Amino acid sequence: MADHNPFPGENNTGHIWDSDLRELKNPPPRWWMIGFWTSILWVVGYTILYPSWPVGEEATPGILGWTQIEEYERGVAQIEARRAEFESRIGTLGVEEILADPGLTQYTLASAKVLFGDNCAACHGSGGQGNPGYPVLADDDWLYGGSTAKLTETITQGRKGNMLAHQDILSAEEVDTLARWTVEMSQGEPGSEAGWQLFSTKGCSGCHGPTANGVLAELPGGEVITVGAADLTDRIWRFEPGGYESARHTILYGVNQSGVEQTREAVMPAFGPTARVEDVEIRRLDPQEIKKLVVYVHLLGGGL
């Protein structure tokens, strides 16, 4: 900084850097000063009209009495008023009647998307594609049936698969034969005679059905009787990655078998109004929300 002002007569402060860098005392432009004082007046006016200054646990209320909560509640009320007509109709109609009404179906899908994201997407994926270890909802392969009635039953009551562990029942050779037969069936082959023999005599057909497609009986109207056993005749594997080793593991250790360390786990919780988690009753979804989810899942691509 210079000790003497080398720019006499200039309106500067006398602070000089690097020989010629100095600080002037010129007033700000008029437009800048107008904006400056206007902003001060605006702040004063705002603090008078709206909640602003913290006083104790609350802020000064402002003479307009406006609050964000009240504005939010008004917005929610407007949305609910708009939805009321659709929600009322959904409450009085069955799932099939909703699906028959294109406009109501579109509303239901939009409404159910949030429900699906909050309750289902963690396991089944955001688009129903199925996360690792969980079923795909966007195809037409259903363990318990894909009709709207079955979907309602599944979402409300939940599902828990069950398959006996055969590690102490079958010999190593029999397990190997059945695992290879399962792979053959999944590839569209007829399956070995030895495999069919074991399938029939070891009780497998009691759950997977006489033709190994998971269906015990077909009813008029497309409904089927099933206990949730997998269809062994398609290329879809309940437990990835599929193939010989996967089939062998499932045969040996079963599904949801208590006391079997390597058993497969396949449980879907109940989402009904009186669902229980670890013997504690909690509120999950009401009947109307379940109805919306049934429509949503049905139209993901795999409903029957």
Rank of each mutant, 00 (worst) to 15 (best):
residue 154 T to V: 09
residue 169 I to N: 15
residue 46 Y to W: 10
residue 257 Q to M: 13
residue 51 P to E: 09
residue 250 T to S: 12
residue 182 T to H: 07
residue 9 G to V: 10
residue 140 D to C: 02
residue 214 G to H: 02
residue 212 A to P: 03
residue 179 A to H: 02
residue 61 P to Q: 10
residue 109 L to Y: 04
residue 226 T to I: 06
residue 292 K to I: 07
residue 244 Y to F: 15
residue 236 I to K: 09
residue 15 H to W: 12
residue 174 E to A: 14
residue 137 L to D: 00
residue 207 C to V: 07
residue 177 T to S: 15
residue 188 G to S: 08
residue 294 V to Q: 02
residue 215 V to R: 04
residue 50 Y to T: 02
residue 83 R to C: 04
residue 122 A to R: 15
residue 109 L to M: 14
residue 31 W to F: 12
residue 217 A to R: 13
residue 110 A to F: 13
residue 172 A to S: 15
residue 299 L to G: 01
residue 215 V to Y: 10
residue 129 Q to V: 15
residue 105 T to K: 08
residue 64 L to W: 13
residue 128 G to H: 01
residue 255 V to N: 01
residue 217 A to M: 07
residue 210 P to D: 09
residue 99 L to A: 11
residue 252 L to S: 04
residue 22 R to C: 04
residue 196 W to D: 11
residue 246 S to L: 03
residue 260 V to D: 03
residue 45 G to H: 02
residue 256 N to K: 11
residue 239 F to I: 08
residue 108 T to S: 12
residue 178 L to S: 04
residue 250 T to M: 09
residue 16 I to N: 04
residue 173 E to I: 12
residue 145 G to I: 00
residue 286 D to A: 11
residue 194 A to G: 08
residue 150 K to E: 15
residue 31 W to C: 06
residue 193 E to P: 06
residue 80 E to H: 08
residue 166 H to V: 02
residue 75 G to K: 10
residue 242 G to D: 13
residue 163 M to D: 02
residue 159 R to I: 11
residue 90 I to W: 00
residue 268 M to P: 00
residue 145 G to R: 00
residue 103 G to K: 15
residue 89 R to G: 04
residue 128 G to D: 03
residue 259 G to Q: 13
residue 126 S to M: 14
residue 250 T to R: 06
residue 192 S to K: 04
residue 207 C to K: 05
residue 46 Y to N: 11
residue 298 H to V: 00
residue 206 G to K: 07
residue 232 L to T: 01
residue 171 S to R: 13
residue 280 V to L: 11
residue 30 R to F: 09
residue 140 D to A: 10
residue 219 L to M: 13
residue 234 D to M: 02
residue 60 T to P: 04
residue 299 L to N: 03
residue 184 E to V: 05
residue 137 L to I: 03
residue 228 G to F: 06
residue 303 G to T: 08
residue 172 A to W: 02
residue 39 S to Q: 14
residue 165 A to E: 05
residue 131 N to V: 13
residue 95 V to Y: 00
residue 60 T to N: 07
residue 247 A to I: 05
residue 197 Q to Y: 05
residue 177 T to Y: 04
residue 178 L to Y: 06
residue 152 T to S: 10
residue 63 I to L: 15
residue 33 M to W: 05
residue 30 R to C: 03
residue 232 L to E: 01
residue 11 N to W: 15
residue 18 D to A: 14
residue 48 I to H: 12
residue 269 P to S: 12
residue 13 T to P: 00
residue 49 L to K: 11
residue 4 H to S: 14
residue 177 T to I: 15
residue 231 D to C: 13
residue 200 S to V: 08
residue 213 N to K: 08
residue 184 E to P: 03
residue 57 E to R: 12
residue 42 W to C: 11
residue 287 P to Q: 02
residue 228 G to M: 09
residue 61 P to I: 06
residue 59 A to N: 10
residue 104 L to A: 08
residue 244 Y to L: 15
